[in-house]
Design a protein around this nucleic acid. Structure first.
Length: 673
DNA sequence: GTAGAACAGTTTTTT
DNA sequence: ACTGTTCTAC
């Protein structure tokens, strides 16, 4: 089983005993190594259920376990050993353990989980209640409040330090923010909801108690953490409590690919791991199996510009190929044209669309390309950006379901009631109050005082919740169907693009067919939402070919034969929106590196000289772009430089005084004679 | 109290 | 372009 591995990989697989850090450069067989290690542990007799595998996305855990099964071979009668391995994200594992042991720290097992949007909304409600927006100084908006809160929790730092470091313009509001956050904590407890940060925080707290800590610790012999460079301080502390002294702990990552600093991830976790855990065995994987030497040359030069990192030079034995290309385009249209041309050319030569990917910094950077792909009927999946579950109608539907699951969830309640005609925030609050107080829908009176416009729907709503919130609710898809019957007409009245929205609601109902537990379905959708609208349609069949469009963040861990990186201009990469601190610029550099290092054989970086930096409104300005600062001449020397369409004919601009041909203007005016 | 219109300010990456 | 806020007419 170990013959296929190189020396370092084998060392990592066979290591036995103290903490281990595997520094795995891009494309160095990290997944292979992890899969072998898990298989090895199981082969040595460690029971699968005593292995915990923490990954960044659940999909990664699933893929890994699939490969473990391949390595172990199938014991015909038995369930695959890997199916017992605890695998998933920190958040999903936390949820499972909290449902299992939460009662020992007084946590009611029926909690529901607030996603980012819910958390923002709750903060917004509280901000209004506390009249924090009233003062003469503007109070930070809800999204910013949540960012501050989340950063404080995740980085284990006091609010004032967080403000000073990341939000200097909010320092005046320190007291207001602290008050807001205290209230927020109380309100979540009353409503029995946990937000993303709470999942980690409570997991951490659980491990710290005498009542549950030892029991949870005793549940696992081996803990493996993937993408360790993107963990935050809270997660590191949590691992400390789970594996005291680093016993049985293996972390894998690449500091050169740390790209989640904005979410309070800290590269320090991986850089300092050996010092924090004395006796750490460090293994560096540097042989790259992914890219041609030519592409490695380019990516090595790019990442060499980072200020601080585990120095390592990747090398490859792969046959040599084309050099990376750096393409200058005169504008965005040309960029689109060029990339499309290349993609189709490669498909002609037999490279499926799904082996090619277009990557970009911000979700809207691919808009023009998407339009063009749609126009020409070329199928694509887009990952990253606004997701399905963040759209208003889907959030409405989920609020219905969440309210049934947890009647105390005030946010879900007010959202549902606010959908009735004539019912605004005030009436909604009054109507939900008895349910919120008692935690049951029994208290709902069909004769309650509701605005005349809502009378009929109110009756139906009460009936709906008597059924869904009762002791024996119907099967989940039936529940969704009932909700859809009630909500469909309201949705039609409220929003545009009705057909598309109604179709989404239908797909949700189909998705629900795969679940028996309502809580599991809700948890799934909040913790691991479908990453593209096409994901909803279920797993794509094998003969289904589509191009991959993805934000760089969402492309982490993936690889493609051909990669096209759009908009490699200063302002996009690095983004203008960073504050420009050296740390943040470094993170943008690593992000660029992640994009480039996805490529196996072909890599094209394009940048338009001129582009409309915002969807053009009135006075939408175009800017003259500069090539990203991450490709200075010595680095760009590893690229083939060329213009997209050197011979492109440019129509001459008409003289400034001739807006329209005179005869045409005359004809337009004649219409009014 | 609610709903809709008018206006103003912002615009990334995600569990 | 979009979201959030304020104003105004029911």
């Amino acid at each position: 089983m170990l013959e296929a591995l190189n020396d370092q990989q084998r060392a990592a697989v066979l290591h036995d005993g103290g903490p281990m850090l595997i520094v795995a450069g891009a494309g160095t067989g990290k997944t292979t190594t992890l899969a072998h290690r898990v298989a090895q542990l199981i082969a040595q007799g460690v029971p699968g259920e005593r292995i915990l595998l923490l990954t960044f996305a659940r999909r990664a855990a699933a893929e890994l376990l699939r490969r473990v099964d391949g390595l172990l071979g199938r014991a015909a009668s038995d369930r695959p050993a890997s199916s017992r391995v605890w695998g998933g994200t920190f958040h999903s594992v936390a949820t499972r353990l909290l449902r299992q042991h939460g009662e020992r720290i007084g946590l009611h097992p029926s909690f529901t989980i607030h996603d980012r949007g819910d958390s923002e909304d709750l903060l917004d409600v509280l901000r209004a209640e506390l009249e924090l927006g009233r003062g003469k100084r503007r109070f930070p908006r809800k999204g910013t409040c949540l960012d501050i809160y989340s950063r404080a929790v995740s980085s284990r730092a006091p609010v004032d330090a967080v403000l000073a470091r990341g939000f200097p313009w909010c320092t005046e509001q320190l007291d207001g923010l602290k008050l807001l956050f205290r209230t927020y904590v109380d309100r979540k407890a009353e409503q029995r909801v946990l937000d993303y940060d709470d999942l980690l925080l409570f997991f951490h707290a659980l491990l710290g108690t005498e009542a549950a800590g030892p029991a949870v610790r005793a549940q696992f012999d081996q803990v493996l953490v993937d993408e360790y460079q993107d963990t935050n301080a809270l997660q590191a502390e949590l691992l400390d409590r789970l594996c005291p002294g680093g016993r049985g702990l293996t972390v894998v990552g690449d500091d050169a690919q740390a790209i989640y600093g904005f979410r309070a991830a800290s590269v320090r976790n991986i850089l300092d791991f050996p010092e924090i855990h004395p006796g750490t065995r460090t293994v560096v994987l540097a042989e790259n199996y992914r890219s041609t030497p030519e592409l490695l040359e380019a990516t090595n030069r790019v990442i060499a510009q980072a200020r601080e990192r585990h120095p390592k030079e990747l090398w490859s034995r792969r046959p040599s190929g084309e050099r990376a290309e750096l393409i200058t385009c005169s504008d965005e249209a040309e960029q689109t044209e060029f990339v499309l041309g290349r993609i189709l050319e490669r498909r002609e030569q037999g490279m499926d669309l799904r082996r090619q990917a277009v990557l970009f910094r911000a979700s809207h950077h691919s808009l023009q390309l998407e339009v063009e792909l749609g126009r020409r009927g070329i199928p694509f999946h887009k990952y990253g950006g606004l997701r399905f579950v963040e759209t208003a109608h889907v959030r409405d539907l989920l609020a219905f379901l969440r309210l049934a699951e947890n009647p105390r969830d005030l946010l879900a309640g007010t959202r549902v009631l606010g959908l009735l005609p004539g019912v605004g925030p005030r009436t909604a609050r009054a109507l939900i109050e008895p349910v919120q107080r008692t935690g049951s829908f029994e208290g709902w009176d069909t004769a309650a005082k509701v605005p005349a416009a809502a009378r009929a729907q109110w009756q139906a709503l009460v009936a709906l919740y008597r059924e869904l919130g009762g002791p024996r609710p119907p099967a989940l898809p039936v529940q969704l169907h009932r909700i859809r019957t009630f909500y469909g007409p309201l949705c039609e009245e409220r929003y545009d693009h009705v057909t598309a929205r109604l179709r989404d609601l239908e797909s949700l109902e189909q998705l629900a067919a795969g679940f028996t537990e309502r809580a599991a379905f809700l948890g799934e959708l909040t913790l691991e939402p479908p990453r593209s609208t096409q994901d909803l349609a279920g797993p794509p069949s094998l003969d289904d070919d589509y191009l991959v469009l993805s934000t760089i963040h969402s492309a982490k861990g993936l690889e493609f034969d051909a990669v096209y990186v759009l908009h490699a201009a200063d302002g996009n990469i690095p983004s203008d929106l960073t504050t420009g601190t050296p740390e943040e610029i470094d993170e943008e550099l690593r992000l660029f590196y992640v994009a480039l290092s996805r490529a196996k054989r072909h890599l094209a970086v394009t940048f338009p000289l001129r582009w409309f930096d915002r969807p053009a409104g009135v006075g939408g300005r175009h800017a003259f772009a500069q090539l990203t600062r991450f490709l200075p001449p010595p680095v760009a020397a590893a690229f083939e430089l060329r213009a997209a369409f050197p011979e492109a004919p440019r129509p001459a601009l008409p003289p400034a005084d001739a807006f329209l041909l005179p005869e045409l203007r005359g004809a337009l005016k004649a219409f009014w004679n």
